[in-house]
Nucleic acid binder design. Structure first.
Length: 256
DNA sequence: ATGGTAGAGGATCTA
């Protein structure tokens, strides 16, 4: 079973890249963030044409998440239960007894912003919900755009970014609180290239200089860690015309 | 201190 996540920064613009990527990589499930589409505009036919079903929840202009899958997902959820939120940032479904939770964590803007407080509150609500989901679904994958670089090796210039949004102590504590529920960062299960990142600012030639951050993650519950065979970042999509500022991350699980 | 780019939507807001 192959599971992937990709913040596409507008599915309308990135649709040809997404369908090409599905054909080339054949994931069982691809999780998308920042689709930036209202539900009535979701391109179900174009995605169906390459053999994938879609479930999605979106809104005008911002946010929006989706699950593209070969098989039909069950128990689809499109909000964190008990957390009032106008922003469409989560979608979850179950495939082969594997609970797949796709998240688009708020960016936070900067640590003085109201958006930062919203981010921390959102992460707290996520934690409470994932704790409950792990009881129901021992095979669980939490993946998406976390907007958190967990440790200094995940940041191109940790001295400059120290304490700033995406790297602040409170955000990192919220990330490790998720791991403490019984989740593992699949990327660090394996040897990886130095300076591996998943996002580079569009500005200042950040990608060419590899001035990025690793903020997109695939976390696995303990039951899935033992059957995880690989986790890789696909930088190739950042070299295409009109790229997203994020690139896909994918895991391979055996025996599923 | 500011700007640099991209996307949505039609002026700014978000990232």
């Amino acid at each position: 079973m192959k599971l992937a996540t990709w913040n596409v920064n507008s599915l309308k613009v990135r649709l040809p890249q997404v369908t090409d990527w599905l054909v080339s990589n054949e994931p069982d499930v691809l999780c998308l963030q920042e689709t930036k589409l209202q539900d009535l505009n979701f391109p179900i036919n174009e995605i169906s044409a390459v053999g994938y079903q879609s479930v999605y929840v979106g809104q005008k202009a911002y946010n929006g998440v989706a699950l593209l899958s070969k098989q039909t997902g069950e128990m689809v959820t499109t909000a964190i239960p008990g957390f009032k939120d106008d922003q469409k940032r989560i979608i979850a479904a179950t495939y082969n007894d594997v609970r797949v939770i796709c998240i688009y964590v708020p960016n936070g803007e900067n640590i003085e912003s109201d958006k930062y407080q919203y981010k921390l509150a959102w992460l707290f609500a996520l934690n409470r919900w994932v704790r409950e989901e792990l009881i129901k679904y021992p095979k669980l994958v939490l993946l998406g755009d976390f907007n958190i670089a967990p440790e200094d090796p995940d940041v191109h210039n940790p001295e400059i970014w120290e304490g700033k949004v995406l790297c602040s102590q409170a955000e990192r504590e919220a990330y490790f609180a998720l791991l403490n529920l019984g989740l593992v960062d699949s990327f660090r299960l394996f040897d990886q290239p130095e300076k591996s990142y998943t996002w580079w600012d569009y500005r200042m030639m950040a990608f060419r200089r590899n001035q990025g951050m690793r903020i997109d993650h695939i976390l696995l519950s303990n039951e899935l860690v033992s059957i995880c065979e690989a986790c890789m970042i696909d930088k190739s999509t950042r070299k295409l015309e009109q790229p997203s500022d994020h690139v896909p991350v994918m895991v391979e699980l055996s025996e599923l």
